[in-house]
Write a protein that binds this DNA or RNA. Structure first.
Lengths: 111, 111
DNA sequence: CGTTCATATGACTACTTGTTCATATGATAA
DNA sequence: TTATCATATGAACAAGTAGTCATATGAACG
């Protein structure tokens, strides 16, 4: 410690969540920190969609979308169901909408 | 387009925000997508703190913290005030707390 | 069976980024 | 001024990652 802020440090240190929890938190936000994934999540918040529909909507490769969907699925933000050859993805959690909503509020509410 | 989902595509396409807005949104979440920055933001949500206090709290270099504070300041998530040689940082926006809170809800509310 | 459609996957590459190290700035005190 | 404290900054390096390309899987159809 350089100058004196022991009391403050102790206070904040007790309130700070465990490293692992904060790491999980940043990992969660990291998923929203890519424009392709945010677009996918936003689209899925409107409607369930199949992979090629998302790819066309975003003007991107099926492969690129598939990779991102896997990332989102591994994190349990989206889930899928199969219907013949087509696989439909949807949000697995309403928190996704809430988180995106909060972000939008920050962006749009500028005085 | 490969198989038929024109109606859905048109519907979702009109509801999807502009590319630039979604890009800004992902840029915002990107800031929360690093454990060091999340820790800093969480700490500052408890109390205003100087750089070396944050560095000690997180067990990291003053330089590393300073770099991240600059990133957060450029994004207008934190602001600073000078008091002699010391510079105190604080959250510049209550949305930061709300966003972190939403993330926590998602993490903790598991059934 | 073989073919086609929809999606998934693995390897590779180019780009981004968080930290370190050394140094600079800027304020205070002697 | 010189020294010291608190912070900022620039360059460089290592680790992570989004997209591409080629290929694999898996279901439906003839």
């Amino acid at each position: 410690m350089i100058h004196n802020h022991l009391d403050l440090l102790n206070k904040v240190k007790t309130d700070l969540p465990a490293d692992e929890l904060l790491s999980d938190l940043s990992d969660l936000f990291k998923l929203f920190g890519d424009s392709t994934r945010v677009k996918i999540l936003f689209a899925l918040s409107e409607s369930e969609m199949c992979v090629c529909a998302i790819a066309e909507l975003l003007g991107m490769t099926q492969s690129a979308i598939s990779h991102q969907l896997r990332t989102l699925k591994d994190a349990n933000l989206v889930a899928s169901r199969r219907e013949g050859k087509t696989i439909y993805y949807h949000l697995s959690d309403d928190h996704v909408r809430a988180i995106i909503g909060q972000g939008f509020e920050h962006l749009t509410e500028k005085q």
